[in-house]
Amino acid sequence: MARSRDPNFPPYFYEAYRSTVRRSPRQPLIAVPHTLSEITGPGPVVSSADGEDNDLTQNLGAEGEAIGERIIVTGRVLDDDGNPVPNTLVEIWQANAAGRYRHRIDQHHAPLDPNFLGFGHCRTDEQGNYQFTTVKPGAYPWENHANAWRPAHIHFSLFGSSWVSRLVTQMYFPGDPLHELDPIFNAVPTDAARDRLIGKYAHDVTKSGWALGYRFDIILRGPEGTPFEPPVPSRTAKR
């Protein structure tokens, strides 16, 4: 079958991101046609489950509010034909404002926030809109290379409408000087595609006296998604 990976997607093996070295497959992936197994998927069943949990500033169940710069992150989930993906589950997780995850293996010497859990979920509405209230996550050090710091980011997980729509990604924040130093971000091979991972400051989302707004739209493969021909125009294929 002639199907290629999207040329804007990161490769599995990207040496600068050290964890890929022993975890990326060495054999080529084998293309399969889209059968009922691929055009169905768990999106509808997981999205029918339970209620909203989209305010991370106060979803730990403690009395107080999370410390940090309060933000609203909103956007639309669309398929690659531009149609909204309605009523679909969006899961997020993130570090607190000091750059610390509430997770047993996070040893970063930064404080936990007794009022911040760091994860939540919601469902898109009929137009594909989702919205979270949270605090801006901090950057944090990691062991990939000398003096390595992850730029501030929020992890996103979406199922979309089919097995081929499944997406786990990260939203970054505009103007972060750590972008150019981060191998996970830079594994995405093109400027245009990296730019799609950066939430945009949105003054129309910003609420006066309350929270800064960011817009982050997410484009998922549709059920019949990418055509069976290689999607690379010939001029870029020559590189």
């Binding site: 997780w93 998922l220 055509p227």
Partner: peptide
């Protein structure tokens, strides 16, 4: 193909347990 590019994937990282599990 439409002009809309797909959102590229990124790793789940090591801290996904609260978010996904």
């Amino acid at each position: 193909m439409t002009g809309r590019g797909l959102t590229p994937p990124q790793t789940v990282g090591p801290f996904f347990h609260g978010g996904m599990l």
